[in-house]
Simulated scan of single mutants.
Amino acid sequence: MPDHDVAIVGAGPVGLLLACLLAQRGIDAAVFEAREGADGRSRAIGIHPPGWAALDAAGLGPAVRAEALALDGGEVICGGRVLVSLTFDEHRRVLILPQHRTDELLRARLSEIAPHALRLGRAVTGVQDGGAVVRVSLETTHEATASFVVAADGVRSGIRRRLGIGWMPRPGAGGYAMADVPDAARGARAQLYCEQDGLVESFPMPGGRRRWVASDPHRALDDAERFANAIHARTGMRPELPAGMRPTAFRAQQHRASRLVAGRIVLVGDAAHETSPIGGQGMNLGWAAAVRLAAVIERSLRTGRADLGSYEKHTLASAARAQRRSLFYMTMGRPARGPALPVRNAAIRLLGTAPLRGRTADMITMRGTG
């Protein structure tokens, strides 16, 4: 008999949510995480309809809604003119909550329903599929065994690499700088500035804060003054960064694993697909996949057959759609000058017209993704 029904490698938001879903089904899931503590960075902040549906399924919906800021909608702006204005109804609501707080709520929920499931400071150094049982090699102890192993160990997944699974680049890459600053005066709407010198995003956050993101292809905005000056030059707005704060520079990229299943080992979340954070889809995409995977694992354990093909097919197709959306968002936010600028702006305005407004809101909020 294996030690566990499922071993999950990685205690990020997707691994934790999957563990909660499995534990609710009475499935013994152990989560192995190399880090001793939690990641305190805010990172992903948007919880789209597929995401809050997944959190509801894990019993976390009320706790998240109690703390999150509900985004009313937003505007796309260029040169001081509103190109598109959208309002989100309750079916398209986007909740805003920093990822570190979402992780804390997920950890608390897992502790409530499976007190000993989370194993911190337990780095996984290898996995070996033995047919009916998968052996998990651990850095600090000998090993653990499980009927299934789920790699939720992120974009740089060691398990994916050890299995020799391809990591295919997809179109859509760019440099950005980001800072979360105090700002309680601008309400619960988002602004996207598609300016001639590049994209600026402004998102409200709980606790009277706001996230600013600026395209930064040359990695020049990692200084507070340059960051604020660039945003002011593009939008006329100047975020006030607290003393000593430096913007976080990052590069958005897109990849997709060539396959997600190797026997009884399966990839999920960022280990399966890297989606540009522009558009805020990655975490929600992983959560929707975790809901599918939990149901497939439960059925496989019940029947004794490792039937993961439907999960792989559906998840890869969903990732491909999300990556196409992200590429579109990034393309619309690129610098545009001369004749290209009014053409681009006309295309954006078209998305806000009455015949397309509902579909545009669905696309932005990931409604219907699953």
Rank of each mutant, 00 (worst) to 15 (best):
P2S: 09
D3V: 06
L18P: 06
L22R: 00
A29L: 04
A34F: 05
G61L: 10
A63R: 10
R65K: 10
A66Q: 12
E75Q: 14
I96W: 00
H100C: 08
R101H: 08
A108R: 13
L110Q: 01
L110E: 04
I113C: 14
L118C: 12
D129R: 07
G130N: 11
A132R: 15
E139M: 05
A151C: 12
A151H: 02
S157I: 08
I165S: 01
I165T: 03
G166N: 06
R170P: 02
P171G: 11
A173K: 05
A177Y: 02
A179K: 00
A185S: 15
A188E: 13
R189I: 05
R189D: 07
L192P: 00
D197M: 09
G198L: 04
V200P: 00
M205Q: 13
P217F: 06
H218A: 12
R219L: 11
A233N: 07
E240T: 15
G244F: 13
R246H: 14
S258N: 13
R259G: 11
D270R: 02
A272N: 06
L285T: 10
L285Y: 01
G286S: 07
L301S: 10
D307F: 14
S310Q: 14
T315I: 02
L316D: 03
A317P: 11
A319E: 03
A320E: 14
R321N: 06
L327H: 11
F328V: 14
M332W: 05
R344K: 13
L351E: 10
A361Q: 00
I364T: 04
M366E: 02
T369D: 09
